[in-house]
Nucleic acid binder design. Sequence first.
DNA 1: TTGACACGACACCAAATGGTATCCTATACT
DNA 2: AGTATAGGATACCATTTGGTGTCGTGTCAA
Lengths: 128, 128
Amino acid sequence: MMSAVAQTRDVYYAVADPTRREIIRLLADADELPLNRLTPHFAMGRTAVSKHLTILKEAGLVSERKVGRETRNRLNLEPLKELQDWLSYYEKFWKQNMVRLDQLLKEEQESEAQNTAGRACADSLNKY
Amino acid sequence: MMSAVAQTRDVYYAVADPTRREIIRLLADADELPLNRLTPHFAMGRTAVSKHLTILKEAGLVSERKVGRETRNRLNLEPLKELQDWLSYYEKFWKQNMVRLDQLLKEEQESEAQNTAGRACADSLNKY
DNA sequence: TTGACACGACACCAAATGGTATCCTATACT
DNA sequence: AGTATAGGATACCATTTGGTGTCGTGTCAA
């Protein structure tokens, strides 16, 4: 019911590479970045970074916008919802395996959160 | 502060393969399974499934227990927490990108949730 | 218009991935 | 004892992955 772009690549795969996760992080911080601003963050050539970007685009995680001679890359987090859904399915087993971790969480109820983010999170949980 | 096993393999990588995700699902359903119970679910030989299992073990997602001549495999979801944490970092951007989706969620406040699962989820969110 | 820059498009390559088939040992069945 | 089953170990193979370098084209600046 919305953009969807192309999604020719598995999101799980796209996110499996540390370089690509770093690209995601950089784009999240900077909103929009051309290739030549991304490249200096990595120990590899421009072409390699470009290839990683292509994979992220194929997974729908990055969209591009041409501005003059540069191509600005923007993050689109929507495909991560698939990962989120997958994970939330296993969160019901979570509690069984990690009861002792639950104890730790109990002592940090620092008000906060419980806002929209928390609600959306809980919502994706009770689909299963 | 707990098991931790070995973790010689990246969890993101382990989970990137559809066959390995299917193994995870099967183990989640059945609690404990030997290789020969897993193999018939896939269109590949025993050795291939065994290799996937090895990768899951290297990522700490599966532990083994020898019983007679078979090796029972059990799921350990703890390493998925890393994925969960990574994802929750980006959930704050979520709202910016998907405000219209928030509308849809708004109409399904069917009580429920808001229990421990919801709290743990919100908790992992406010770490950032 | 001349040159520098951004970057897509290839061609190329070593290493990793995802399968296979085969061999071997340990365990269980009769 | 002899046979069948479970599965680890290894060798092997095609394809994919993740890099590289180079070329060509469009854009900006002098």
